[in-house]
Design a protein around this nucleic acid. Structure first.
Lengths: 203, 203
DNA sequence: CATTAAAACGAACGGTCGTGCTAAATTCTC
DNA sequence: GAGAATTTAGCACGACCGTTCGTTTTAATG
């Protein structure tokens, strides 16, 4: 069957699947090994042996979530041609990742960032690095839209990315807290305004 | 001295002061009674007696934070005359509340919302109600700017408030996680774009 | 100042946390 | 299928959690 799927790796993947789901509900910091073990259906110590420390479990969970994000958001959006079309695809995928998933709990990375932004350590470091990379990737996608002639040449990519991120955050916040999906439409209107009247350099 | 400041109320206030500070660092959920007691310099049971339950402590902490917010943000901004001037004042005050405070930890309400958005109970209910009220207040401030002729008559107040909130969230997120104050400037540029090219109805 | 009420304390409770250790069970390799 | 390696379980530990209770200290009242 799968080439390198030893039993250990298989259960490890299953654990991380459950860890993502559980952490989205209670938070990455409130993720307990006992609770996770019960959810997966194995012993606490058996699960623990896969990671050796709680912090490792947290990091592994974040990395697994990032992998999923890349597949469900970035990868899919990058099938659209460069330009606003890809930008819209990315935004739409991102929206459904962050605020419209069926299972409870929003975006793990966003929640974890808010949770760990004052807790120094590897988890925070990972999140910060991840954020830097994502911001860069967003800026690049905007640049492609400029290159395609879909956006004015003097569009400020970084400012655009910053505001785009704000739209996602606001949607995430309101949809999750107020349980009102109409904010998804607000997000889309915000994107259109960004496209029609984008932020520009020296303006 | 102060009229109704029995000893009990005084220490209760001191406790809540410390609770806000501590909760901003570790999160409202990770707030422990023992840790808070140590910080305040009193016994665990003595502190506990003031609230009777941890959830009451959490709620009291949130209410105390809201009180501060009203005084430091809303109240001050409302001294400016209605219109964009007040809008700018509000935004600036809000910015320094959320992302530029000296002490560690960002905005408690934002962090708590992200932490409790999937944890049913009084804390979540309080946060949701608070958010509804704030969104309404924001919209009203925008409406004043329309009435003063500073914004087009067909400006969409709710959409405006939604995007404004996104700017604050994005700033909060980036400043806290990446420790880079230059995002404050991004926030201000976002506000200017909102004023110059606001979202409109039927557009 | 004496009395009473309020507030703070100290010790203890049952539980759960993360983490070692050792033994049993399972999977992999030849 | 035998033997080695990996994976899982069981149990115990010290620490800390929220909470209770009885006592002692402190503040308010006449």
């Amino acid at each position: 069957m799968s080439r390198t799927a030893s039993k250990g790796e298989a259960t490890r993947d299953a654990i991380l699947d459950a860890a993502i789901a559980l952490a989205r509900e209670v938070g990455l910091g409130a993720l307990t090994i006992g609770g996770l073990a019960e959810r997966v259906g194995m012993s606490k110590s058996g699960l623990f042996a896969h990671f050796g420390a709680k912090e490792e479990l947290q990091l592994a969970t974040l990395k697994a979530a990032q992998l999923r994000f890349d597949e469900q958001v970035s990868k899919v959006a990058f099938q659209a041609p460069r330009g606003v079309e890809r930008l819209r695809a990315l935004f739409e995928r991102w929206l459904s990742w962050a605020a419209a998933q069926r299972q409870p709990g929003g975006c793990l990375m966003i929640a974890a960032a808010s949770e760990f932004d004052d807790v120094p350590g590897p988890v925070r470091d990972f999140l910060a690095e991840q954020q830097r990379g994502w911001l860069l990737g967003l800026g690049r996608t905007v640049q492609f839209a400029i290159d395609s002639g879909d956006l004015p040449a003097d569009t400020d990519c970084e400012q655009f990315a910053f505001e785009l991120f704000g739209l996602i955050l606001s949607t995430h916040h309101h949809v999750r807290l107020l349980n009102d999906a109409h904010f998804l439409a607000s997000a889309r209107r915000g994107l259109e305004r960004l496209i029609v009247a984008p932020p520009r350099h020296n303006a």
